[in-house]
Computed example of a mutant assay.
Amino acid sequence: MNTQKLREKCFGIEEFTADILNWIQSENLWNIWVPKTYGGLEMNLSEGLQMLREVSKIDGSLGWTITLCSGANYFVGNLKEGTIKKIFNNPKATCLGGSGAIKGTAEKVGEKYRISGDWNYATGSHYLSHFTLNASIIENGVPLKNEDGSEKFLSFILPKDKITIISDWRAMGLKATLTNSFKVHDVLVGEEYSFEYDRFHQPQAIFQLPFRVFADLTLWVNYIGMAHHFHKEAKNLTKCNYLDMLMHELKIADKMLFNYAEELEAVISKKKPIGGNKIEEIHKSASNSVRNLSEAIIKIYPALGMRACSENQELNQVFRDYFTATQHHNFVNR
Rank of each mutant, 00 (worst) to 15 (best):
F153E: 04
G110N: 14
P143R: 12
E314K: 13
Y121Q: 13
S167M: 12
H228W: 11
D244Q: 07
F230E: 02
D321K: 03
G149W: 05
G124D: 04
K183W: 03
N180S: 13
E262V: 07
T179A: 15
K235E: 09
T177L: 10
G141K: 01
F214P: 01
R114I: 02
V290E: 03
K9R: 15
A261T: 09
A106D: 13
L219M: 12
L79F: 10
K80G: 08
E54P: 00
M226E: 06
G124F: 09
F153H: 12
K36Y: 04
G305A: 08
R199C: 12
I252A: 06
Y38Q: 06
E81R: 02
R291D: 15
N31W: 08
E281L: 14
A72W: 10
G77F: 08
H283K: 01
T105I: 15
G117T: 01
Q25D: 03
K160W: 12
S289C: 13
S61I: 09
S155F: 08
L133N: 10
F207R: 04
I157V: 13
V34L: 08
F230G: 01
F211Q: 07
T164H: 11
N288I: 12
M306S: 15
S26Y: 06
S46N: 11
P91V: 05
L158K: 01
T177A: 10
K299R: 14
L264I: 10
H229W: 04
I206A: 01
E265G: 07
